[in-house]
Design a protein around this nucleic acid. Sequence first.
DNA 1: AAAAATAACTAAATCGATTTAGAATACTGT
DNA 2: ACAGTATTCTAAATCGATTTAGTTATTTTT
Lengths: 339, 339
Amino acid sequence: MKVTIDLIAQKVGVSKALVSLVINGKAKKYGISQLTCDRVMAVVRELNYKPNQMARSLRTGVSNTIGLIVSDISNGFYASMARQLEDLAANSGYNVVIGSTDENINKELRLINILRNRQVDGIILSSSQENSEELENMFKAGFPLVLIDRYFPNAGIPAVVAENSQGGATLAQHLFNQGFRNPLVLNITPSYISSVGERTSGFQKVFTDNSIVPEVVQIPFSDIYNVVYEIFSKKVKEKNLPDCVFAVNNNLATAFLSVLSKFNLAVPDDVALVCFDDLPYFSIIKPSITVVTQPLDVLCSRTFSLLMEQISNQEKVEEHETIFEPVTLITRESSIKIK
Amino acid sequence: MKVTIDLIAQKVGVSKALVSLVINGKAKKYGISQLTCDRVMAVVRELNYKPNQMARSLRTGVSNTIGLIVSDISNGFYASMARQLEDLAANSGYNVVIGSTDENINKELRLINILRNRQVDGIILSSSQENSEELENMFKAGFPLVLIDRYFPNAGIPAVVAENSQGGATLAQHLFNQGFRNPLVLNITPSYISSVGERTSGFQKVFTDNSIVPEVVQIPFSDIYNVVYEIFSKKVKEKNLPDCVFAVNNNLATAFLSVLSKFNLAVPDDVALVCFDDLPYFSIIKPSITVVTQPLDVLCSRTFSLLMEQISNQEKVEEHETIFEPVTLITRESSIKIK
DNA sequence: AAAAATAACTAAATCGATTTAGAATACTGT
DNA sequence: ACAGTATTCTAAATCGATTTAGTTATTTTT
């Protein structure tokens, strides 16, 4: 037997309107007597009544649910992001529905649609779109949306990202200072994704400013290990190894390390390594891995605030600047030149 | 301007009942003419109408959403689990709402409540409860529930778990065969959690059968690194090191490796290591780490099927046996005795 | 040609809440 | 004693779908 607001109202002998008002803390506002409040709450507790969220959402148009869409929730970076956002959301009475896109543009669009039909109050999105048209329309139409990790320059959609370009440059400068002169960039395809694109271009600029043009290879998202293996297989055969490698994310770094060990090559003696985003094991292994890290907690809390702002102030849908959060270089053994 | 079923009905010039029937594929059943169907669908497409899920759920009592509750979604194991379940769910038209409990019994109960108020159609749970009373009641009351990774013996709640005991035994036997005689078990608190409990007891049995009683230390979930550090700090001081360590999960193994390197101790020369659940880096590092792995894909698909069964057959709420999936030993360098 | 059967559709109830205008009662001041 | 004001509460509309009993028009049967 279901416990609905009608049941409560019956038991107490009042209207369900009253019960609703009491439950939603509007008793004072509507001059409901303390006695009545207490009687209602007593029954509510006795029967452990919890309002049906579907009914509530239908009426109010608010679901207290937000959507989080990322390329792959099993990826450690996004998993941590999900966790932090989950906690922030929970503190504000929100739940999180999660979707993974596999970097697939259509899957992303489909997911957005599904979540909107499910009346999520807003979406936090790490987009794999190539252009931002659809997202702009959505945002301009007043749907609460915040981009995280990846943004679209000049699209006017609120976004919170790391200073990826700066991060790439920092790593490049570090390698250059160490005396490395023959860098290879392992970049992820699709390369139009802002984060990896900017990491690469920031990296490139430092070297080209020093008259060195880094080689950049594109690795498809879906088949990292094998492609990295092929690349190094060829380079080993041609005795054409770089003296250092920049992996634009930690999956690439892991694949790279795995491939190197297959070829019995050592870091940093044979090839140095730097990468984006720390992993627990990077500081444990020998050699430990030099990285640039993003302040994930800051990214998440900024993002969540921006979303909440939009959700509460339905009117103002201003253009938003992208927020760039600074990154941190952690120098470890993998990038120290052996003399 | 919202696109509702009323709008569609108006535009086409039919009742909204008809629109609903057409949309839900019941046109034939209700003898609606092909012409009318086509006219409805044309408008539906033109206005890109998608039914409001809240309204639909309110009416039907079905939300096409399932809940996933784990201790921590940022943990790689659960993140992968989430991803696999998300994909399975998506294929069946379901969304996944995620919650993390931090191994906190009350948080878990609260989350279950919240998800149920949100009318999730069922819950997949990796429980941190000490006893299963509440969960049993829920299940017996007909709420679709499947336990994953952790179960309650004789509770009658459907569960899909790895052969943890067997896994612990396998690792123990491997270590014993390698000649290790002084094992230390790093166990997670709370230890009533079936998975880690059984890993430990399975491990212990093999050694006690060989007249060796392994030392077991309890590490609180929330502060792994520091506690492991303290333990080894003491052991190093007392020159009382074990010759091998069994970490009941990969977080413990990572912390252990980190601590060991702090003390300049080497694996496996000073202390060997085996652990439960593989990580990408375990096969890359020197030495690579011996592990027992769970067939996560099988666990997930079995779990999801069991949940779907319950969701579709509302009547039969039978007692269920726990399903145990076999685990696999991957022998690597960290457990090979140096002569 | 009246009765029965079929085809194609619709009205209205329903799910479980929220919200607002206004009803009922008691209390003031003159 | 009565209009005016508080106080406390309720009726009914509403959100956007689904579902079922029933209506209307058409065709078939006898």
